[in-house]
Design a protein around this nucleic acid. Structure first.
Length: 559
RNA sequence: UGGGUCAUGGCCAAGCGGUUAAGGCACCGGGUUUUGGUCUCGGCAUCCUAGGUUCGAAUCCUAGUGCCCCAGCCA
């Protein structure tokens, strides 16, 4: 296969239409160098959808040996907070991207924007509007009916200048006036029907304080900010496609550097929601414990759950960039996660749902330290030792009294291997008065120490186990999808919240886990990946978050 | 009955007039395996519909159909 077809040679990044555009623009000399930006509004935490945008913008910059700015779109002080800029910077950094010196704020440009506005007023391209919000809406017309001109549309330049000056000084009440661009009230594109550029907002701004009484709207601030920063390609999501003519109009009227806006489809993931509004609701209504709840699709939540930056970046590259609305199967995220965790997680043994096993022919009071590899995928991870004794726990579902033929775990009379330890055979099943199995009796073969037999005997099943005497009781948090519907956005999210999205259990783990440090990645053998919770763990009392289960073809087949 | 997009296998997504129509996920089957994990091998589409142009069309044209977005002084 010709690699050129699918890959940008320098970068090995997958081909997509944005890269194609950039190549064309570069070739045509439209732009001499590439310069991108990631422009979050600091009104919420970043989520996996933002991660895709971050990977795209910073990834493009890496490919073209260019810079990607981090710019906070802080034009609406009534919704924005410093707490969010803090978290956004942390998340971008954690994902592994470095914006160096180029950390900007739209509010850095408020003075320049104001000067630009005066320029437009002087050119007769903007005017002060006295109509209120409702009237403006009425005058705007509808999707199928053209709007009509405001009675204030033809004020003189002098009057507009004076009124705008007064707006700026705070002489008018909020809502009483706005500055509008004078474009075309009959345009089929509603964005071109004299869009609002400035509104009066007597609100404290997290950076400019009380200096401003008027704040620019997105359309007025964004393109000009791009222009000021010398952005070549301004990448945003599909819903801004209709704004592109306006974006272009402003920079053309102003006669300033003209970036190219390119839109792509935002990421949708099954069994979760991506809208900031809905995520905020989950937080405010306490459906989750916070923005960093491990069930949240926020970067902070994923990080706490045990995702790695590599997994998220790999996922972002994997889903691609296009203009078609799509819903990515959450399984694809899990696949990227497992791929990375498989390489780095230390293998340990933990029994989540224990059943007691007594090995009758093993000497009472004896303990052996058995050697165990930490990661078969990574020899440098080394080895450790695990205590073995007469009484152990195994997983409840690793035993079946009436086992089907293909079941190769423990059953009466059957022999299995205890990982790193011995072969055992089940000799007896002990039940309580209700018939519930409470204990298993087994015998072991002393000749199989380490889990090997030299007589060529075949043992199909291998179980994990924990010595009862040495077990650490660990709090383990098992997570599942937050929603029961693949597309919770289709209806009201409250109606499909998954009541079982969190289950807290006490697991029996091998003793070494008592000293697990926050931030360590583990694989509980045969079960899944677990991550030491960074918030609630205490020294000597780590709490484990289930990041994702191992692929389980047995469970899949047998429900 | 306005405007702007999009449409390739179950889910993403390459493809830009000549390819056996990439790749990943999922799924199915074989092998390896002290994790029913990993790894490995193999299987899995004729491109929304209908016409047309062409020696040749997923790629061009025409007409349909369907999805999404837009009527904030939000971004």
């Amino acid at each position: 296969m010709n690699e050129k077809n699918t890959t940008n040679e320098e970068t090995k990044s997958p081909s997509n239409f944005i890269r194609t555009f950039i190549e064309e623009d570069l070739k045509a000399g439209q732009y001499k160098k590439v310069h991108t930006r990631f422009p979050p509004e600091p009104n919420g935490y970043l989520h996996i959808g933002h991660a895709k945008s971050i990977c795209l913008n910073f990834g493009l910059a890496e490919s073209y040996n260019a810079v990607c700015n981090l710019r906070f779109d802080d034009t609406n002080p009534s919704k924005e907070e410093d707490e969010y800029v803090r978290s956004i910077k942390e998340d971008v950094k954690w994902l592994g991207f470095d914006w160096g010196e180029t950390e900007f704020y739209a509010s850095d440009y408020f003075d320049q924007l104001h000067a630009y506005a005066i320029q437009l007023i002087k050119a007769g391209k903007a005017y002060v509007e006295d109509l209120n919000a409702e009237e403006i809406r009425e005058y705007r017309g509808t999707l199928t009916k053209p709007g009509k001109n405001s009675p204030y549309r033809d004020r003189s330049v002098e009057e507009n200048l004076e009124l705008f000056e007064k707006m700026t000084r705070g002489e008018f009440d909020e809502g009483s006036k706005v500055l509008r661009a004078k474009i075309d009230m009959s345009s089929p594109n509603l964005n071109m029907r004299d869009p609002v550029m400035y509104r009066i907002l007597k609100v404290h701004h997290h950076r400019t304080g009380d200096k401003w009484k008027i704040y620019p709207m997105y359309d007025w601030a964004h393109g000009q900010s791009d222009s000021i920063e010398g952005i070549s390609h301004s990448i945003c999501t599909l819903e801004f496609e209709d704004h592109r003519p306006l974006y272009n109009w402003f920079v053309e009227q102003l006669g300033i550097h003209h970036p190219r806006q390119i839109e792509f489809a935002r990421l949708n993931l099954s069994y979760t929601v991506m809208s900031k509004r809905k995520l905020l609701k989950l937080v405010q209504d306490k459906f989750v414990t916070g923005w960093d709840d491990p069930r949240m699709p926020t970067i902070a939540g994923l990080r706490r759950r045990g995702y790695t930056p590599e997994a998220i970046r790999n996922f972002s590259d994997g889903v691609g960039v296009a203009k078609a609305n799509s819903l990515v199967d959450i399984a694809q995220l899990y696949a990227s996660l497992r791929e990375d965790l498989n390489k780095r997680a230390l293998r340990v043994m933990a029994v989540l749902d224990p059943i007691k096993v007594v090995i009758e022919n093993y000497p009472e009071g004896q303990t052996e330290e058995l050697e165990a590899v930490n990661n078969p995928e990574d020899e440098s991870a080394g080895k450790r030792t695990v205590p073995f004794s007469r009484e152990i726990y195994i997983e409840r579902n690793d035993f079946m009294e009436d086992a089907p033929r293909k079941y190769f775990r423990l059953a009466p009379g059957k022999e299995v291997r205890l990982k790193h330890a011995y072969y055992i055979t089940c000799t007896d099943v002990i039940k309580d008065e209700n018939g519930k199995i409470i204990e298993l009796r087994c015998s072991y073969d002393p000749a199989t120490r380490g889990g090997w037999s030299d007589d060529g005997r075949k043992v199909k099943g291998t179980l994990h186990w924990v010595s009862i005497e040495h077990a650490y009781n660990a709090e383990v948090r098992l997570y599942d999808h937050l929603f029961t519907e693949p597309e919770p956005d289709k209806g009201e999210i409250e109606e499909c919240l998954n009541p079982d999205s969190l289950k807290v259990i006490t697991a029996k783990t091998e003793p070494s886990l008592k000293d697990a440090q926050a931030g360590m990645y583990f694989q509980f053998l045969r079960q899944g990946y677990f991550f030491v919770d960074s918030v609630d763990s205490k020294p000597g009392a780590p709490i484990f978050n289930k990041t994702v289960g191992l692929r389980d073809s047995w469970a899949k087949k047998n429900g």
